[in-house]
């Protein structure tokens, strides 16, 4: 017998009473979506900046290698993207669009089409996500309602920069992935 069949037969041999799936009630979100989203992002060690702030940062030249998937900033793109994510290793800033944000925890939903290469939001040194403030939901239930059964091969809730507290519980930003997350509402 294959291990598959063995495991399934062992499960079948266990007499188990039927248990119904519960119905998840509508948990309403109370409060101002945008204010809460900003507070959540900040708690996750990200920040929310204005478009003008971002343009200022870009113009200042602090980011050497920049890649924008958003037209408003594409004039700052100065690298060529290939199919090989390894070449993004020295990318300093990526600018991408998020589909929607979740107020209760600051998570932003991204799919393959938003990232291009799946490694992009991780390997870049700094990350900017552009979000439409009309695209905010209250909580994770509403978030999954929004996603529905869309079929992206990869989906990501990104809620802040890469972080760790593995050394004596001291919070350090920039463990492996992006050292910063800036969200721009447009």
């Amino acid at each position: 017998m294959s291990s598959r069949d063995l495991i399934l037969s062992k499960i079948k041999a266990v007499p188990l009473a039927a248990k119904k799936l519960p119905i998840i009630p509508e948990f309403e979100f109370e409060g101002d979506l945008k204010a809460r989203f900003i507070a959540s992002i900040q708690a996750n060690k990200g920040e929310v900046i204005s478009k003008a702030d971002l343009l200022g940062l870009l113009a200042s030249g602090v980011f050497e290698k920049v890649y924008s998937r958003i037209e408003d900033f594409s004039s700052f793109t100065n690298i060529r993207i290939t199919e090989d994510a390894h070449q993004l290793n020295d990318l300093n800033l990526a600018i991408i669009r998020g589909q929607f944000g979740v107020a209760e925890n600051g998570a932003i939903w991204l799919e393959d089409q938003d990232m291009g290469l799946r490694a992009l939001p991780f390997i870049t040194e700094h990350l900017v996500i552009v979000l439409d403030s009309a695209n905010l939901v209250g909580n994770m239930h509403q978030a999954y309602d929004m996603i529905g059964l869309q079929e992206s091969g990869f989906g990501l809730f990104l809620a802040g920069p890469s972080k760790t507290a593995d050394i004596e519980q001291s919070l350090v930003i920039g463990a492996h992935g992006a050292k910063s997350l800036r969200v721009v509402f447009m």
Partner: peptide
Amino acid sequence: ATGQSVTNYTSHFRSPS
């Protein structure tokens, strides 16, 4: 787990690149 509202990365793998 840690008293944070969500992990900073929650990745959904559905099919390979």
